[in-house]
């Protein structure tokens, strides 16, 4: 092509060069190279996959009934029969954690879904229409954000009542303000971008610009926030359950399990430890994936 390739500067050599089109074998090789650079993604994705499976098909992972009360098997230490021990009623703790994945995860998923849908809608309207619509919506969002998030979620729980679904809605509505702000920012950025201007001068109509350029480019950056928010939702729902405002007994939910175990922490610490570890690991894994997604989108 051009006689002198105007490549990127060598000082900037740390940045990756665009990869040339690969044939079959080198694609495998480059896939392996990619994996070796992002090896930490493997356990993170693995953990999330396992937890998802717990939620979908808990019966595959344990034959125990999480609600079965066995008076003879109270406070058993972790063993090969009861991996994470048993609680004060003889429930198998491992089974309770596996079955607890479903309320915890559906709660988080619902929270994130509400946050994304409500937030994106508000944000997109605000950013696209601009002017007074934008000013009004943004002031309202400032107000919501000036109330500490967790307290705001508590207030919503008061309105909706206690329970896992209510807690999820509360967390979702609280996070929607953040999503709205992010989406609005992205819409504004896209609106001001050179490629939208180029689309205007190309003759594209404004509706087509919204559909073809602004929306797709505004939604991509939220992907990392969605995964991140998933972890946050797990934590918040667990915290609400811990305060007794979320899942109600005997439903096995992770935060609830920690609360229940806490009374026996001196004698049966596994009842607190294992659900806590599961929560932390789950959140760490989703955060790690979120990090990866955000790095990827910002390097584009």
């Amino acid at each position: 092509m051009t006689a002198i390739a105007d490549t990127t500067d060598l000082v900037d050599a740390a940045s990756e060069r665009p990869a040339p089109a690969d044939d079959g074998t080198s694609r495998v090789v480059s896939g392996l190279v990619w994996l070796s650079r992002h090896w930490s993604l493997v356990p993170a994705v693995g953990i999330v996959a396992i937890i998802l499976l717990w939620a979908i098909v808990p019966g595959l992972f344990t034959s125990q009934d999480p609600l079965a009360i066995v008076p003879t098997a109270r406070f058993l230490h972790p063993s090969s029969a009861h991996w994470f021990g048993t609680d004060q009623l003889g429930h198998d703790e491992y089974a309770r954690i596996v079955y607890g994945a479903r309320p915890s995860l559906t709660g988080s998923a619902l929270a994130v879904a509400i946050g994304v849908v409500v937030g994106s809608l508000i944000g997109a309207v605000s950013g696209w229409f601009g002017r007074w619509v934008d000013a009004l919506i943004m002031r309202a969002i400032d107000v919501v954000l000036s109330i500490p998030g967790f307290l705001f979620a508590i207030v919503i729980v008061v309105v909706l009542g206690f329970g896992i679904i209510q807690a999820a809605v509360a967390v979702g509505l609280t996070s929607s303000a953040t999503f709205a702000r992010l989406i609005r920012g992205e819409v504004l950025k896209a609106k001001a971008s050179n490629y939208v201007e180029a689309a205007v001068t190309s003759g594209t109509s404004s509706l087509a610009i919204l559909r073809r350029h602004v929306l797709p480019n505004s939604i991509a950056p939220t992907l990392s926030l969605i995964t991140l928010q998933f972890g946050v939702a797990i934590m918040w729902i667990a915290s609400l359950s811990f305060l007794g405002l979320g899942a109600q007994p005997p439903q096995p939910e992770w935060g609830r399990l920690v609360t229940d175990g806490r009374n026996y922490i001196a004698t049966a610490s596994w009842l607190t430890l294992w659900p806590a570890v599961v929560i932390v690991v789950a959140v760490l894994a989703t955060n790690h994936i979120s990090h990866f997604v955000s790095n990827r989108s910002s390097s584009r």
Binding site: N194, Y195, A198, G203
Partner: peptide
Amino acid sequence: RQDIQIVYQNPYSSFDPR
């Protein structure tokens, strides 16, 4: 716009990244 078009200083930023 079928008759008048523009070429920008920074072509890359005038392309939708997608």
